[in-house]
Nucleic acid binder design. Structure first.
Lengths: 196, 196
DNA sequence: TCGGCTATAGACCATGCGGTCTAGGGCTGA
DNA sequence: TCAGCCCTAGACCGCATGGTCTATAGCCGA
């Protein structure tokens, strides 16, 4: 089974990826496609064509440590994207739409097999470090929207709606294999968020 | 819910369920807590205190057939709930809030370990019958909202936003262990949906 | 040239998995 | 009373899993 790693997961498109980065990128793709429990160590090794020794050398904590690194990677990537967009003084609704648009491209490119962001990773073992990592990522993204919206009580509400419509829309779109559902829900949410 | 289903779907000593129903109820709870791949056959057997023979007698198709039955069960339950609410001529926003409220109660009662509806079951194996079952359930719920909203193009958009804000809000709330996020996003969505 | 270190390589292990199979309990109608 | 049949019961199987361990390749400074 060969896995095509999306370009967005490449740390530096110019230079070849190190072993560690390859493991993170490949496992992220797999986790986004099948969820934490749905991916086996050998799936990851097959995808990277690396031996087991390399994986446990770079991630002595095994599967969970690797998953946490993958979550941190995507969390940073999206966070940076949000920071960059907001730095252009865009309105929150526009940023949301921009993010959703990238998700749509991603969904289509992977033929709806992969879930952008971390929806599927939420199915992690109960009170684990992995759950915590996912939680932290969502908090960071929420905070970006919240501060950009003014930091008021109302801003918090709108930030919640933004992320909820995104994650929920992705879930709907993936099931229906049609990005329409994501676009519709996010567009409506953006409309509401931009109202003051 | 209208039917006598305990909070965890597990049978109570007072209302004895048949073996098949017990298996469906227990597995649904487990799947909602840990996702399809996160639940093992022995988890289900432990939860029901039933032997393996019973499970494979009632569900010769094994784990997947059981999961499909569980999805059908919750799909029917929610669908009936929606039909009943809409029959009272409630506005779509009010129905959405009502549904969200039940989800909040559920989340709290299970200490945020269980995901209401079928968010976590989306992490099912690719092009399987289980995925299809989840997809069908979502389509049915979407259709309920859509027809209640008038069946127009705009109604479709709003129905998407309704379900997306629900599923997304549940995901947010579960991670943050606070039902606030769900309430906020759904309230805002309901507000928008009720506009004409 | 060599010693030491990092990273690769993959054989190996115990465990738990989903699933099969046979035996028997217990209710049914005759 | 007993035959027939659902259903329960759980031993058993082959296999994939996550993880460990030893060996060694390749590099870099001395």
């Amino acid at each position: 089974m060969t896995i095509e790693v999306p370009e967005t997961h490449l740390p530096t498109p110019a230079s070849p990826m190190g072993t560690k980065e390859r493991l993170i990128a490949a496992s992220l793709s797999l986790f986004q496609a099948k969820g934490y429990h749905g991916v086996s160590i050998s799936d990851i090794l097959d995808a990277t064509a690396l031996p087991k020794g390399s994986l446990y050398h770079h991630f002595p904590g095994g599967k969970e440590e690797l998953a946490i690194a993958a979550v941190a990677f995507i969390a940073d990537e999206v966070d940076a994207k949000l920071a960059a967009e907001f730095a252009k003084n865009k309105r929150a609704g526009a940023v949301l739409l921009e993010l959703a648009n990238e998700c749509v491209i991603w969904l289509r490119r992977t033929d709806f097999t992969q879930t952008p962001l971390l929806g599927l990773l939420a199915a992690s073992p109960g009170e684990s470090a992995l759950t915590q990592a996912v939680c932290d990522a969502q908090k960071r993204w929420l905070a970006r929207f919240e501060t950009a919206l003014g930091g008021t009580e109302d801003a918090h509400d709108k930030a919640c709606l933004a992320l909820a419509s995104l994650e929920g829309g992705i879930s709907l779109a993936r099931m229906a294999r049609s990005s329409d559902l994501l676009i519709r829900s996010v567009t409506l949410a953006a409309l509401h968020i931009n109202q003051r």
